[in-house]
Write a protein that binds this DNA or RNA. Structure first.
Length: 337
DNA sequence: CGAACGTCCCACCCGATGTC
DNA sequence: GACATCGGGTGGGACGTTCG
């Protein structure tokens, strides 16, 4: 996000940015660790230190003022302040200009070290090496992911990042807080929009289908609306997800369904379905994994319901985090279609 | 020794900030 | 919002140093 100009007036001075804002602490730390001891005040004036550097470079108060685009008296005042702070003349007039005292030279040497430290800090980048990282990624998803995403994901991770671990956490209403705090890296699934501060990326489209056991005595190749309402259903509670769209659609279309069993997880659906005559409305991706055994059939729903997208969600705090960026890219590589 | 140049100091001004 | 305070900048004069 780029900050706007917000009507700020231009600063009257235009110091050459030798050290960035906030560098005073680093400079203070460098000075306090030296043989010259602490300056008279710990409230280090960064501009005065910039002026000191410029004085050393130019050997002239006037020239330093010109270079820093301030008045000569301003430089003079700053020098006076520095002299009080360090209890040393720092620069004395000679035939060759304002020459630094030994004390000033030592301070300048330390300032140079501090500058290098600051530059190093500013250029510091967090490197994430997937091939050697032992990081644990915490993913929130419905247990659908266990069947539809994890096998592919873990196979790929074994190839490119063998030491990385994945911790799958259940969906809940507190996903936004968990993503924001960093307790969860990524939330994947059919999840309602989380609002400002969150990013999301579409991975693939999915839709609802009806699953029944292969030898269901009444449901043949086509499911009628009448059958849908007459048969008993097996449903799954899915807090924190967008699956409630199914309930809303049924209510809007005034379609009634008789629930015989409600379970907390998609994982146990298959064995129950194969041993009962229940109908279960499930995501097609999940249904296909059930149907691969040959014991369960998938049928079109007898009413229209919009398809939906499986997305990956993350918080803006981690939008540029190299590890999070890498993991998202792996997810996109495997599932974006 | 005086001119030129550079530094220092003081009074004043301005903007930011805190307080009521 | 008005006012006080403070930090920091400016202009200008005083003073010091250098050099021809």
């Amino acid at each position: 996000m780029v900050e706007g100009h917000n009507g700020c007036k231009e600063a009257p001075q235009s110091y050459t940015a030798v050290w960035p804002e906030g560098a005073g602490a680093a400079i203070g730390a460098a000075l306090s660790g030296s043989s010259i001891g602490r300056p008279a005040t710990t409230n280090i004036d960064l501009k005065s230190l910039i002026i000191m550097n410029e004085l050393h470079r130019t050997r002239s108060v006037s020239q330093a003022a010109e270079n820093l685009r301030v008045s000569q008296s301003s430089i003079s005042m700053s020098l006076a302040k520095l002299r009080r702070q360090f209890n040393d003349p720092l620069f004395v007039r000679t035939s060759t200009g304002m020459e630094p005292t030994p004390h000033a030279l030592e301070v300048l040497t330390l300032l140079s070290k501090a500058e290098r430290l600051i530059q190093s800090a500013l250029q510091h980048q967090v490197i994430f090496d997937a091939t050697t990282s032992e990081r644990i990624f915490h993913i929130c998803s419905t247990d659908i992911a266990v069947l539809t995403l994890l096998p592919t994901l873990m196979r790929r991770l074994k190839e490119i990042a063998p030491s990385i671990q994945v911790d799958l956490l259940p969906m809940s209403d507190s996903i936004p807080r968990l993503l924001e705090s960093g307790e969860v890296d990524l939330a994947v699934g059919f999840i309602s929009p989380m609002g400002a501060g969150f990013y999301q990326q579409r991975l693939f489209r999915d839709r609802f289908v009806c699953a029944v056991r292969a030898g269901h005595p009444r449901v043949q190749d086509e499911l009628t609306l009448q059958q849908f309402e007459l048969e008993t259903h097996l449903t799954v509670a899915t807090p924190g997800t967008g699956h409630s769209v199914l309930e809303r659609t049924l209510a809007a279309k005034k379609i009634r369904r008789k629930v015989g069993l409600r379970v907390p997880s998609f994982l146990g659906l298959a064995p129950i379905l194969t041993n009962t005559d229940y109908l279960a409305v499930v995501p097609e991706q999940l249904g296909q994994s059930f149907a691969s055994t040959g014991q369960i059939r998938l049928l079109q729903l007898p009413f229209a319901i919009a398809p939906y997208y499986i997305l990956q969600h993350w918080h803006e705090r981690y939008n540029h985090d190299p590890a999070n960026v890498w993991f998202r890219s792996v997810m996109a590589e495997l599932f974006l279609r």
